[in-house]
Design a protein around this nucleic acid. Structure first.
Lengths: 146, 146
DNA sequence: TTGGCTGCAAATATTTTGCACTGGC
DNA sequence: GCCAGTGCAAAATATTTGCAGCCAA
């Protein structure tokens, strides 16, 4: 896990560098994403924000998450069935371990996929740009609950 | 790639065994999914069906795909941004290689992830039930087009 | 000052569901 | 004949967009 403080500053710098404004709402979203505690979804981010910005809109969260995604500062974990989840703490592709009961998402340590990725590129002629590796299961806590 | 004909029969048997009826629409959907040419989405499946069943509803396609997914006879590749895609030819989890331009989806040969999966289970206490492994890139044909 | 950003509400896109009717078994 | 399955339309869910006003630079 990267230092949330460092990630926050990196994101701020990147936004400034690209000429984007630093509104209070945007900064608050950055802070949450720099931590990405539990890989929050848009709804969860919004819920946290409302404490300090009672009128903040979901649309604002969406717009900022999209912006950061385009800048490569947030990794989007898209799910078709449930809302998407975001990781601004480690925006590079990495494997995830997902509990299908409580929806908790962990970052397990696994050797990366560069080798497989390179081989695939050679064999297929694809230019491979990213990947997604999710393991689905039931976490210890949910298993205990039966 | 499994024999579409064999997959079709397996699916029919499984439905019968579970007491589901074999309507003409359902059988037509099975045939398309047994091939899963290009990993079709619901829309693509529906488009093929309309030739023989002009009044067939999208809802029917959804309902059957969901049923087969629950029976483990179809693998759903959920995408948050675009519609979901389905593989009834090989319903076990396996890696996919996806062109982000033309949305073509291939099944590359890769060593499976059982080892990594088992290790994860041991290290984290998760009961791992399935996984998803996607590589995203640009296919040779789209690269040629610039 | 001003154009990017925000809040709000309406629009999209995809998938699900209620309901009456039909047809597989 | 019964009830799962179907077609249709409406609803639900998640995300995007138009627009008027606001504020960061």
């Amino acid at each position: 896990m990267a230092e949330p403080e460092g990630r926050f500053r990196t994101m701020v710098d990147r936004l400034r560098e690209k000429g984007h404004r630093l509104t209070p709402q945007r900064l608050a979203i950055l802070k949450i994403l720099a931590r990405s505690e539990g890989h929050p979804g848009v709804e969860a981010i919004h819920r946290q924000l409302i404490q300090d910005y009672p009128n903040i809109s979901l649309a604002t969260v969406y717009r900022n998450v999209i912006l950061l995604k385009e800048l490569g500062e947030v990794l989007e974990l898209g799910f078709a069935d449930d809302g998407n989840r975001y990781d601004g703490n480690n925006p590079r592709p990495h494997p995830h371990l997902i509990c299908i009961r409580c929806r908790r998402i962990l970052d397990p340590d696994l050797p990366d996929l560069k080798e497989a990725s390179d081989r695939l590129a050679n064999e297929t002629g694809f230019e491979i740009l990213s990947h997604r590796m999710d393991f689905f299961g039931i976490c210890p806590s949910c298993r205990a609950k039966g």
